[in-house]
Every structure is written in C-alpha cells, then in structure tokens.
Design a protein around this nucleic acid. Sequence first.
DNA 1: GGAACCCCTGACAACGATGTCAACGACAAT
DNA 2: ATTGTCGTTGACATCGTTGTCAGGGGTTCC
Lengths: 351, 351
Amino acid sequence: MTSLSSGSADAEARRATIRDVAQLAGVGIKTVSRVANDEPNVAPATAERVRKAMAQLRWEPDLGARNLRRSDGRTHTIGLLVGSVTNPFAAQVSRAIEDVAVRRGSAVFTSTLEEDPDRELASIAALMRRRVDGIALMPIAPSQAYLQEEIDRGLAVVCVDREPRGIALDAVRSDSRTAATIATRHLLRRGHRRIALLLDREDLWTAQQRRLGFLDAIRAVGLDTADCPIVPGLRDAESSGMAAARLMKSATPPTALFCGKNLITFGAVRTLQRLGLQHQIAVVGFDDFEFADLLDPGVTVIAQRPSQIGRLAADRLFARIERPGLWVPEVIDVPTDLIERGSGEIPPPIE
Amino acid sequence: MTSLSSGSADAEARRATIRDVAQLAGVGIKTVSRVANDEPNVAPATAERVRKAMAQLRWEPDLGARNLRRSDGRTHTIGLLVGSVTNPFAAQVSRAIEDVAVRRGSAVFTSTLEEDPDRELASIAALMRRRVDGIALMPIAPSQAYLQEEIDRGLAVVCVDREPRGIALDAVRSDSRTAATIATRHLLRRGHRRIALLLDREDLWTAQQRRLGFLDAIRAVGLDTADCPIVPGLRDAESSGMAAARLMKSATPPTALFCGKNLITFGAVRTLQRLGLQHQIAVVGFDDFEFADLLDPGVTVIAQRPSQIGRLAADRLFARIERPGLWVPEVIDVPTDLIERGSGEIPPPIE
DNA sequence: GGAACCCCTGACAACGATGTCAACGACAAT
DNA sequence: ATTGTCGTTGACATCGTTGTCAGGGGTTCC
C-alpha cells in the first residue's frame, strides 16, 4: 500500500503532463517530446527510460495543446454534417466517410442537421471554433457562399449527395436528374400516362434535380404535365403517405407513383397497401432499402451507391487537406442502378 | 479594390487571433477576452468597439487554446462509440444522444466500433488524447475495467444498450433477458415445442442475456433444450439467413424462430420467404423495423425504445459531467413492447 | 593539435487563449 | 485633504505541448 490517505479516493487523480514524465525519467521535457513524436537523435537508453516513465504515469499527449504549437496547423479532426442519421442512405454515407477518416488518423465530429438551414450555419461555426481540418457536408442552406472565407483560411470542404449553391465546391453525388428521367421513362414505357411525382422539400438540390429529370422525360414524349402532378414538401413517411392517399382519392388518380427518396417510398407503399392498391398502382422509388425485395410486390427502385459516394467524398476531402492549393472544384458523378422488382412493372389499367 | 497583389489569391489568409482583435479595437487582449466571455465590468463603449473589431476580423475564439487555460478543465466535447451506425437501432440511439449534446452545447466525436474489441480500446485512447468530458459507449470488449483509471481522472462514462463488464458503470438498456422470456413464452403459448434461437456473437452482453431469457422460458415449461437449438455467432443478415436455411433443412426443423436482433430477423425472414415457409414457421424478432407491418405476414417483434434509451443515457452522462462526485453507478431499465403482427402467432403444424 | 562535424540534450520562447493581480481614475465618505 | 471603494483596464504568468537554438562531448580528418 502506498499511503493511507490515498485510501479515501476522494480527490481526483491529476492527469500526468509531459513535465511529470520528464521529471520521472530524469530528462528535459523536450526529450520526452522527441520520444513521443518519434523524432531522431535520442540515445536508445534515454528513450527507453522515457518510455518507461510514460507507461508508468500512463501519460498520453494532449492533442489540443500539441496542435496549438504545431506548425502544420492541422488538428487531424474533420466535421461530418449529415441531413439525418436515421435515414439509412445517410447512415451508409457516414459510415464510409468515417472509415476513411479512421484510416487516416483523423477523428470525426458528427452533427445531424435535420435538414435545417440554421443548423447548418451553427454547426459549421462550431466546427470552425474547434479548428477542424475539413468538412464533409450535405448542404441544406440556400447558399454555401459563406464558406468562402473559411476556405481562404485553409478549410477543406466536400459536398456529399447534393451540390453546393452560390459557390463552387467539390461534390460527390448521384446524377439525380438523369436517374429520375430513367425512372420516369421506365414507367412511360409500360404505358403510364398519369404519373405522379412525390417529392421532398424543393429547396433541396436533390429534389430540384429529380423534378427536372421527371419533367425531362414527361416532356420528351409530349405529355400534358397537368396529368402528371408533382407533390413537393414531403419530409417524412407520414406526410408522403397522406399525400399518396389524397392522390388516390382525387378525380383522376395517377396510375403510377415516382417517389423522390426512401422515406417517401416508405409512406407511399404503406398507403397503397392499406388501400389494397399495391398491385394496381405502379411505384418506382429513389433509394434502395432493406426488404424492397420482400414486399409484395417487390419495390422497383433507383439504387444509389451510398458507400461509394462516402468513400469518394472522404478521399477527396483528405486529398485537399493534405495537398492544399488551387485545385479546381470538381463534381464527381456516382452511377445509380435501376432495380426491377415488380412494383415498377405494373401496367396501367386498360381503359 | 484594396490592392493589386490580393488578386492573385495565392497566399492563404491568416486566421485572426485575439491579439489582432485587441489591436484593432485599441484595447488589451484581456478586455477582448472579457467581452468574448460576457464577463462583467467592461465599459459599454469599449465592449461595442471590441465587438465591432471581432465582427470585422470574423474572429472566433480557438476552443482548443481556451480549454488549455480554463480552470474547469472541460472541453465541451463528448465521445460516442456505437457498434454500427448502419444498424437502425444504433442510429436512433445515436441521434437521441447527439440531440441532447447539441442542446447542452457539446460537440460529439462519433466512432463506429464494428463490434471490434480492439477498436473499442483504440477509440477510447484517441478520445482521451482529445480530452473529452465524457463517453457514451456500447461496450464490446470483454471487460471495461481499463476505464477505471480515466474515471478516477474525471472522465464520465455511460454504457448504452449493454452493461459493462469487470467494472460498475451507469448503463441504460432494455431488460433483454425478461424480454426474451416474454417472446419465447409467446411462442410456447401458441403450442410451439421446437423453437430455435438465432443469436449474435455470445461475447455481446445482449446476446448472453437473450439466451438466458430464452432458456428461462424453455425450462419453466420443462421442455427438453435439445429440441430448442441455439445458433450463436450470427453477425449479419447473410449469416443469419444461411443459419435459418440450415435449420429448416435439418431432420427435425424448428416450428418457430426467435431472432436475437434486427439484422438476424432480416436474414431469417428473407430465407423463410425464399423457401415459401413464411406462413408455416413462426417468427418473433428482437427490435422493431421499418416495414415489419407490411411484410406478409407482418413480423411480430420485441420493440426496444432506442430514442428513449439514447436520451436517458445522454442525460445521465451530462449529469455526471456537470456534477462529478461519488455517485453510485446505476442501471436504468427501459421497457420493451411485444408487438403482435402475425408471424409470431402462427401455430405449429398439427402432428 | 585543431578544425569540422555529428549526436545528444535541455533552456527558452511560442502557440492562443484565460486567471491573477495591481494600477488607474472617479466618486463618496470622512 | 485624505482615505476607501468600485468599476475599468492591461501586464504578465500560465495551461501542455513543440520549434529553435546553443552547448557539450565524442569522433574523424587534416
């Protein structure tokens, strides 16, 4: 037993600093620093003594203090701002980004924006105060121009899933517009002439693009867009389900639904099943999801590749962090895949 | 235009420090510090000048530097170590924890452990080097005793979803053992006598508990446990699906499956549907999931309450951070709900 | 023998902020 | 006029680390 008073265990143990290690090892603090950073020119015997002292005191360098002095100015920390972690698409993107970060030795500050523009600004400000090296962002604010100043100061930024607005930044995303055209054309080929598009909030870049792609396909066949209603502003499965129900009860209900993202598909499919219409009304959804194949009918989807998107975005982010300079911002396009499972191949009723 | 050379935009802008602000405002740095921290005793006119300078230089304090000197020693940063973000249960828990953290003004380092014990140790070490105030942990390593030292130094820790081993810590989780008993009894009441338990790796606390609860129910009715095989070690939907297929092809296949967590349910349901057995074999799954109600048959589950678990865990964590002291660690039990949807109510075949 | 070099080492300043403290001026009370 | 109090302010030390630099000691090469 070392001492009686230590038995009370009331006072908190103080965390060891580099000075404590130096004293215990009988060397200067700079020598401890050298050993901790694997710098050359330390006598093997000295290094051994220092390492023993480190282990004995369980000393670990304070990265905050280290970063304060280090010349490279890097904190080995990145920020990850996602729309919503509970969205399976976003979760997979996050995971891929975090994977890369861990391999590169960076810690990740994650923050959920809940698709709230104010929260984007607030979160970015918080990350800047913590001096992150870079940020992977799913942009939601109407403009990201406010980032220019931070970028001039050395911040690296990559947009994920959506393109930025008001500023040119690297972005990794699916070509939503083309994918939406392909999905819509898929329904048109089956003979559908009244197709509804259920859409997220239109201030989202992805929603805008998918609307454009939808209209591209509709107009290409010279269809009256009045027969092809667009219902925007659907944030979750509930609102989407209600919108689908309203559509089906209207005077001229659509014969096919194109759902603008996973949560919207969830709501629409649920409503169709509740109304017993799942074998009459065609559905194509954006984003693949668990059980899309096990539902009856299986749900035809445009599958994105979230982990590929995440990995490419992270690679790009670290490339910018490690080799800052005047790169030209670039938009990287990740392919999508149309997966036919039944719901998208239902023909319209014969009139 | 300010100058010609600034047009080259080649050099990076230097980030303003408190000294720059002080100089611009014509005051000492301590006065800037006072204004930044809303300390009293600054003349209104001075404060106004300082605030103007801050805005002009877009100065934001460096939280790393601030923390180095601050007496309370808090970094307003917590760590969140989850098994896997792509697991919807874990995603909901994470989201709830992050919500609380943001409201309390703390940033969150998130790290995915992928159920790897080594990664738990490595991630915790990384968080300690960054001097987080507290950690919310889904424990995976065989023992968390190694945390004692950090706790003595003031770290707050709360376990989520699983209890710690080798040390007493706060924990917020479902009572998996009782829930498993309830689920098993549900099947027994329908007359099932050959029930299989599909289980995750048994080094996970939850898996151990669910096994115990399963056996409690089996033994309570005096059943031969040989007829009730336990298949452990199922990490994902694929391995679970294969295990289910093997079981169904065995000499005396079970008439009911109890699936130990969401991913396992996914695999088992998929296999049963592929074999066309979904209306013959009963299934009860642990964890609710999207579309459990829309499958045919609907999947009966033990639903956990992930956001409640996350919220309670975070509340507890911040309570410990804000009022450190010798609290007695406590295990908080969050209720589960058995939701009947059809698959769990299928009776065994008449022999 | 001396210059030149290399290895090893620690004193000290610095990073960007806050804590401590003393000095200053204005004002009230004696 | 003197003293005391209070609001305001900035010089300086400090947090835990790394960058700079100079010095001591040994070896090698003229």
